[in-house]
Computed example of a mutant assay.
Amino acid sequence: MTTPEQDDIDARIQTYYGEAFDEHARLTTRSAQGPLEFRRTHEIIREHVPSGRVLDIGGGAGIHARALTDAGYAVEMIDPVPRHVDQARAAGVAASVADARELPFVDDAFDAAIMLGPLYHLASRDDRLRALREASRVVRPGGAVLAAGLSRYVAFGATSLGRPVPSPIPGEWAALIADGRPGPGLRFPAGHFHTAEELQAELEEADLEVVDVLGVEGPAGLFLEQAGDVGEQVAGAALIVARAASALPAIRDQSAHLIAIARVRD
């Protein structure tokens, strides 16, 4: 049973992704950050999942699933938003409408699962653990689970930087930086913002063996989000920095997206 808070987020997800926001464009043409995020995400996936049958949980418009299919992986995708599933199917991806907390697959059906969206749309730790345990259930022992979170510190910077700092600090600011709780009035249907350490702890509590937690876009990702067309030289430099900074504690939290890499225990 979901909470009223999560019911509200789930409804906002349908409106936001189904009517207002183009997830396909976010990873391709909206800004220079999208292609950087896409490339780094696939470098990480392919390093830790060299081949096999992959479940893309919350796969959006199917951009990642299509790229993995083209690279020789056998991919299935689920997403709660019908528009996303239609877009993915149009791109040739095997996709269906489903919820990360209740996957319609038997145990040990996949060699790996990627969760690049669900966790940051789930407000409660219990729901996030439920989704992680479902991913673990459908992946064979020794297989990989890669789960993404949105950086709490990047979210706090977006809220607080570039404006006067109130005194005392507003309660919603404190809740964001201390607990990862989104503030009111946020258009994006966020449920939670992670630190790298918290993301690791949640995977471990779901009985997954964590290999690493990495920042995806690196410290230059936010610049690329705002700067528009920066040219190949700047984009290339941002990629180099993203790779170099991905595993550094604290620095990795300057990436908008974090990815935890884990193995299903035997």
Rank of each mutant, 00 (worst) to 15 (best):
M1L: 08
T2Q: 13
T2A: 14
T2V: 14
T15V: 14
Y17R: 01
G18W: 01
G18D: 00
F21C: 03
D22K: 03
E23W: 07
A25Q: 04
R26S: 12
T28C: 04
R30L: 11
S31R: 01
A32W: 11
P35M: 04
P35F: 10
E37R: 00
R39Y: 09
R39F: 09
R39M: 07
R39E: 15
R40I: 07
H42D: 04
H42W: 00
H42E: 06
I44F: 14
I45T: 05
R46F: 03
R46N: 06
H48R: 11
G52E: 02
R53L: 01
V54M: 06
V54Q: 05
V54N: 06
I57W: 10
G60C: 02
I63K: 06
I63E: 14
I63V: 15
H64F: 12
A67M: 07
A67P: 02
T69W: 08
D70T: 12
A74G: 11
A74V: 12
D79R: 02
P82F: 00
R83L: 04
R83H: 02
D86T: 14
D86I: 11
R89Y: 05
V93S: 10
A94G: 08
D99M: 08
D99I: 10
D99L: 07
D99G: 10
A100L: 07
R101W: 09
E102C: 12
L103Q: 10
P104M: 03
D108F: 05
L119M: 13
L119H: 09
H121A: 03
S124Q: 05
D127T: 06
R128K: 05
L132M: 13
L132H: 11
A135S: 14
A135D: 13
S136P: 10
R137A: 09
R140N: 06
R140A: 15
R140S: 09
P141A: 08
G143H: 10
A148S: 15
L150Q: 07
S151V: 00
S151K: 02
S151H: 03
Y153S: 08
F156A: 15
G157V: 08
T159F: 12
L161D: 04
G162K: 00
V165W: 13
P166L: 14
P166Q: 14
P168E: 03
P170E: 05
W173D: 12
A175M: 03
A175P: 02
A175F: 01
D179W: 01
D179M: 00
L186K: 05
R187K: 14
A190D: 00
A190Y: 02
G191P: 00
H192I: 01
F193A: 02
T195G: 04
A201V: 01
E202R: 07
E202D: 10
L203S: 03
E204R: 02
E205K: 06
A206M: 09
E209Q: 15
D212I: 09
L214S: 08
L214I: 11
G215P: 03
V216W: 01
G221M: 02
G221T: 00
Q226F: 06
E232N: 05
Q233I: 12
Q233D: 13
A235Q: 13
A235Y: 10
A238S: 08
L239P: 04
A245S: 15
A245G: 03
S246I: 08
P249R: 02
I251R: 06
R252Y: 07
Q254L: 15
S255M: 01
A256K: 05
L258G: 04
I261P: 10
